[in-house]
Nucleic acid binder design. Structure first.
Ligand code: ZN
Ligand code: ZN
Ligand code: ZN
Ligand code: ZN
Lengths: 449, 449
DNA sequence: GGGGGTCAAGGATACG
DNA sequence: CGTATCCTTGACCCCC
């Protein structure tokens, strides 16, 4: 029992296609292309079609957190349909007339709010024109010729449904994101400080661009879809042997990479760049992303624990290994970063912004679309700045602080990679501890905080 | 051949005469379509599924000539199953993975001989394709639908391409190939029992059982298909940074697991056990398989290097870690094993035998098919014994020595896993070094040999 | 290429 | 438990 649980990775690998990473966003099975807006497999395609077409209402007999995989996807129809919707499957792509051919109006994915998902699942679906508010051409209008700009996959209802209390002048804000001249050019780290100086005007107005809101929602959605399955496995601490732990580590590393990829695929601008560009960016930033993720961990003991471990290592190993001074330095900086994150109380919204900004801030030497990348980065810097300005008007330096954290993350994770290999367990521990500190008893040098 | 062909024609004619596509060929009830190859009713479909899937063995309490009709079909399970088989129900259409939906590649009935039916009814079935005179090219096993996933692609005639380089009787070898042409998998279980008792006489005559040869060829083939792609990646040593190395390690672990799985799928007896059985066996033996693989490494410096590393670790860490004495012990035993393998000059043939024997020798508590497992193990023990006896007549203890190595591998790898986690790099190094010692310059404590 | 449908796989469930 | 009915599923296929 426990053995098989530890080696679920084996079962997973049985079904894993290595030659092609195009996997279904819902269940991870091999995808056969885009269906209803997102890359998905034949099974999930048919399931979504049947469910929506027949207006089925499902029920989860468990805790609505059933895992979706090729083997397990048929165990809960409720959770499967929820994930279809969460991942962006577009109900509008199902044709009532049943005519197979013809007009493909570039039906992209649609990211709807959790409330809308709840209503659909409950069968209260207001199938058409949920709140188009007089827009005669229907919703979203995917066939409009907007030249493939960023706002392609804007959810039609999420900002509006929250009421009209927040909405300011939508025209001004619409321009700011679409047109590059309004949002000033922000070169990444050096210039972001300069940028914040004349951004005070926005802070005063308390405004938060509708498009920025939408982009932020998409980022939050992308973050939500990459739930880590690992802690579920590791939580039942049944006689953790080193062999199991090794297997778990491999699984975790695989899972982490997989989720970063899934996250990238969910980015609103995913289709605007080539896969190899994302590969380059991910290769250059994955360790920073992991560190950022670790810093957002709910568990406060993680990094304190880590620092304790590093110190212990230092005492016992510096006689043979020379680089430990740097390790201590890294530990201190990590500790600072950790405390800074706690002090700021970095929110999920800021986190997703920082994540995508960091992702887009990698070295882009040799990229053919540097301008596009810069535009994207600018856009999300703007989102983050607007968010902090509107949500924390009393903290004028908050945005700058966040960017400074990014800089520090960049430096620290680089140093972490510079630590020699025989201290590899440190890295593994950082990753492992960043999610659940369940195994702390089995590790030396733990610290309480 | 002619007999079965005529039989097939008779059956076909019989079917076409009274099958109007709406009547079950077994019981005459209303048919709901094709099931397992023939038009049949839901009842007979479910009955066949249950009988084959659960490997049921029935018994007729009358004269084995019970009539099948809607009213009477439940009176004798034996005669019902016989008629299912006689009418051409295809056992291959039952999916071992249990995944619903999709389409099978092998559509159509399969008409097998009365002898085969008798064996199936007696429970002596092994899923080979005895006389498939019916459908088109149904010899390989495209059993369940796979949407382009990993599939066991058995190359049809690989042992033949090796020619007659081996100095044994080429006629015998050719015969075995001819046999495998007719039936893809040679029925091995009865044979190995019959032969194992008089294996000594073959030792004297330098003969090597035809069936054992075939089994050995299959094992070699399974080994050949799992080439490691990792060394290709690692060979160009371009500025190996720790980050790259970490990525490579994760990749290597994934690759290793994947290859073990592929190896399992290539085993001749793969279809005879459930996936979860293989998962259990792999979970219990993967570290031993890795160690065995490492011992067969061409690079002689690998283990010597490893032992050097371990000793270095011992000197520097025993002040804080208590288990290092055991590590030194493990190192010594590894060194012994290493030298033993070199001294014996373990061949590829012996290696594949040892591998499968070790795989089948794991703890099988709770297995429902312990007897089957034991049979298989005995069979391959016999193959190995016959091989050593015929190839090394001057080394009467060679087989015993090999088995002793297996025991030692079992013990050592167990101890390796018992080494506390902070010495995890040792394990990783064992794995990493076992293929290419390219990175040795970057590691401390290297040894020349 | 992404809609739709097909139809044999397996699954759920009431019956005995 | 074995049976049989009905339902769900999904790899192929066709269509534009
Ligand atoms: Zn899917
Ligand atoms: Zn559920
Ligand atoms: Zn019938
Ligand atoms: Zn009978």
């Amino acid at each position: 029992m426990s053995v098989t649980a530890g080696y679920k990775v084996a079962i997973r690998t049985f079904c894993y296609d290595r030659s092609d990473r195009r996997v279904c966003l819902i269940c991870g099975d091999r995808a056969t292309g885009l269906h209803y807006g997102i890359t998905s497999c034949e099974g999930c395609k048919g399931f979504f079609k049947r469910s929506i077409f027949n207006k089925r209402v499902y029920k989860c007999i468990r805790d609505k957190k059933c895992t979706m995989s090729r083997k397990q996807r048929n165990r809960c129809q409720y959770c499967r349909l929820v994930k279809c919707l969460q991942m962006g499957m577009n109900r509008k792509a199902i044709r009532e007339d049943g005519m197979p051919g013809g007009r493909n109006k570039t039906t992209g994915p649609v990211y709807i709010s959790e409330e809308a998902i709840r209503r659909i699942m409950a069968g209260e679906e207001f199938d058409d024109e949920e709140n188009t508010s007089g827009n005669s051409s229907g919703e979203c209008d995917p066939s409009s010729p907007n030249n493939g700009r960023i706002d392609r996959n804007i959810s039609p209802d999420s900002p509006r449904s929250s009421g009209s209390s927040r909405s300011l002048d939508s025209n001004v804000l619409k321009d700011s994101c679409l047109i590059s001249e309004v949002s000033t050019v922000i070169p990444y780290l050096p210039a972001c400080f300069a940028y914040s100086s004349h951004s005070l005007s926005w802070t005063e107005t308390y405004s938060f661009n509708v498009h920025s809101q939408s982009l932020l929602q998409q980022l939050l959605q992308a973050e939500k879809t990459k739930q880590l399955k690992f802690p579920v496995l590791i939580q039942n601490r049944c006689a953790m042997t080193p062999s199991k732990l090794l297997a778990l580590l491999c699984q975790l590393a695989d899972e982490l990479l997989f989720q970063q990829i899934m996250w990238i695929k969910q980015l609103p601008f995913f289709k605007e760049m080539l896969i190899r560009h994302y590969t380059c960016l991910l290769g250059a930033s994955w360790h920073e992303l992991v560190l950022l993720q670790a810093l957002m961990s709910r568990d406060c003991q993680v990094l304190g624990d880590l620092c304790g471990i590093i110190e212990k290592y230092h005492v016992s190993k510096d006689t043979i290994h020379r680089c430990t001074d740097e390790a201590v330095e890294v530990a201190k900086q990590l500790n600072y970063l950790f405390r800074k994150f706690r002090q700021l109380g970095v929110t999920e919204e800021e986190y997703v912004c920082m994540k995508v900004i960091n992702f887009l801030s990698q070295d882009t030497k040799g990229f053919s679309n540097v301008a596009h990348l810069e535009q994207l980065k600018k856009c999300y810097l703007n989102v983050c700045q607007e968010y902090t300005a509107s949500q924390y008007p009393g903290q004028p330096t908050r945005f700058v602080d966040l960017m400074a954290c990014l800089t520090m993350i960049h430096n620290i994770s680089g140093k972490l990679l510079g630590i020699p290999l025989h201290q590899l367990p440190l890295l593994l521990k950082v990753i492992l501890h960043s999610f659940k500190a369940v195994l702390t008893d089995n590790w030396p040098g733990q610290m309480q905080e």
